[in-house]
């Protein structure tokens, strides 16, 4: 049994205090491109204090409704983003969210590796049957990354977004435990 499941070659999934999350989340949301890649709803630019109050409530729940991790680059142990699983159903399905807030870590494999780690957690520790995500069609970098982590396309909800006077679609992607095991089982000694 391999217990070193939260560490990859570039990043590790970390636990952070609500203060640290709050300061980083608040700052990252001030980058509007980050917000527009992450959320359908317009960003609210909450203060660290507001974010902290909300997070404290979330992180107190035991067992958690949301499995939230920080993403730390191994080099320098710098907090560069977050990943979370939320809305798990009794049928073994959950949605994953991920964001790399520090722009200098974009397009270098950090996000893909973090996604692979949280998928591993979902399947080997939570025992889920599948993991779902939504990504916007104007985010090709994200789509490519999720494909590499094992996600398959499940459909396209048309015209979900209206931004800059243009409508954009939302893509649904999903990865089944069985397919994930075939693709990554050997890598993780499963």
């Amino acid at each position: 049994m391999d217990n070193d499941i939260f560490r990859g070659k570039l990043v590790r999934l970390s636990a952070e205090s609500s203060e640290v999350y709050a300061e980083h989340f608040s700052r990252w949301w001030h980058d509007s491109e980050y917000g527009r890649l992450l959320d359908l709803a317009p960003g609210m630019l909450f203060s660290p204090k507001r974010v902290k109050e909300w997070l404290e409530k979330e992180l107190e729940k035991d067992p958690p409704e949301m499995w939230l991790f920080g993403i730390r680059a191994l080099e320098g142990d710098k907090l560069i983003g977050f990943a979370d699983l939320s809305g798990a159903t009794p049928h073994g399905d959950t949605f994953v969210g991920i964001g790399i807030g520090e722009r200098e870590y974009w397009s270098k494999g950090y996000g893909t590796e973090a996604m692979k780690l949280i998928l591993r957690f979902a399947f080997v520790e939570l025992g889920l049957h599948r993991v779902s995500l939504n990504v916007f069609d104007y985010n090709p970098r994200g789509i490519r990354s999720y494909e590499k982590a094992g996600f398959r396309h499940e459909g396209r909800a048309r015209e979900m977004i209206l931004r800059e006077g243009q409508r954009a679609d939302v893509l649904y992607m999903g990865v089944l435990r069985e397919d994930w095991l075939k693709q990554f089982g050997a890598e993780y000694g499963l």
Binding site: G92, D93, H129, R130, E154, G155, R156, G174, L176
Partner: peptide, 16 residues
């Protein structure tokens, strides 16, 4: 029209 088919999301009566 059908846009998305999320595979095996529901487990009921022993089936996906």
């Amino acid at each position: 029209s059908e846009e998305v088919r999320r595979r095996e999301v529901i487990l009921r009566d022993g089936r996906r």
